[in-house]
Design a protein around this nucleic acid. Structure first.
Lengths: 154, 154
DNA sequence: TATTGTTATACTCTATAACTATA
DNA sequence: TATAGTTATAGAGTATAACAATA
């Protein structure tokens, strides 16, 4: 059966409250790394070498914002920008070794915070939440951008 | 069994992607109503007449930010501030009739957007996501603030 | 002294519009 | 002409610190 309006209204409330969770996670980031950089690095590891436009699609923001975030991460040596051999207008982005290490640190911090707050959650519930959130993301942003693993078939 | 670190890492990613969903919901708000006001009004309907400090706890932000948002909503006539008879330092907040109508409009917009994007979601999955997100919120912000008795009307 | 709330300031994130360079 | 990306500008959200008023 399809969901009723009361449940969608409740969902809107619950989604807003996720902001508070994300702020709490952001409080444990290193001072030179804004939350947006964490998102950037995470997507670059997941998807490998991608273009600005693809990253913009994945982030669900305007490309002007992506451009600024990428510039910030590049200044700090976490990302490299390379020309796209197939299109002179494009730039290909990828993690540097330094960015890879930075992301390891960021992931560990976020994982520590979640493990502490959700210490009593059963494994199945975390998995269920992950699955539902992944489907939510897909329902809102149905982008078809290859991940690093299957990018070989391209 | 307790969740492993890989699942927490994945959860951090999924939670970040909720930002994009919230931005999409915000795009359908009326131009004179920033997303923060929607959150304010929603909490005030749910909890009835509460104090600044309680609202701050529910929002998970600094009270200085709450103060600014409340001032904005008050200027637009959506909220009333009353002195607390039990504590001269406090102010009690509540929705005005105009704020109540405004919130009805906001809820309808958010519900329309969700119903459109999640048209193919079964009722049970929405309910499951709501339940898990509610537990997530509780795990991060275990505030004990009473809910208004008549909030189930409407 | 401690607490409640407000204000000033600065920083992050975002969108729009104008611009450059390439297709 | 159209597309990829950058930059300038403005608006919203937030935290810190300093402050006033009350407990």
């Amino acid at each position: 059966m399809t969901a009723g309006r009361a449940e969608f209204r409740e969902l809107a409330r619950q989604l807003r409250s996720v902001n508070a969770v994300n702020r709490e996670l952001a409080r444990h980031l290193p001072s030179d790394c804004p939350p947006a950089s964490a998102g950037l690095l995470s997507l670059l590891r997941r998807h490998g070498e991608i273009r600005m436009s693809e990253l913009t699609e994945l982030l669900g923001i305007d490309m002007s914002v992506t451009s600024r975030h990428v510039a910030h991460a590049t200044e700090r040596g976490w990302i490299e920008r390379h020309p796209d051999p197939h299109d002179g207008r494009s730039r290909l982005l990828r993690l540097t070794e330094s960015g890879d290490r930075q992301l390891d640190d960021l992931s560990e911090r976020a994982t520590d915070t979640l493990a502490h707050r959700l210490y009593d959650w059963p494994d199945d519930d975390i998995a269920a939440l992950n699955a539902l959130l992944d489907r939510l993301r897909t329902s809102f942003c149905p982008a078809q951008i290859p991940t690093a693993r299957d990018s070989s078939k391209k």
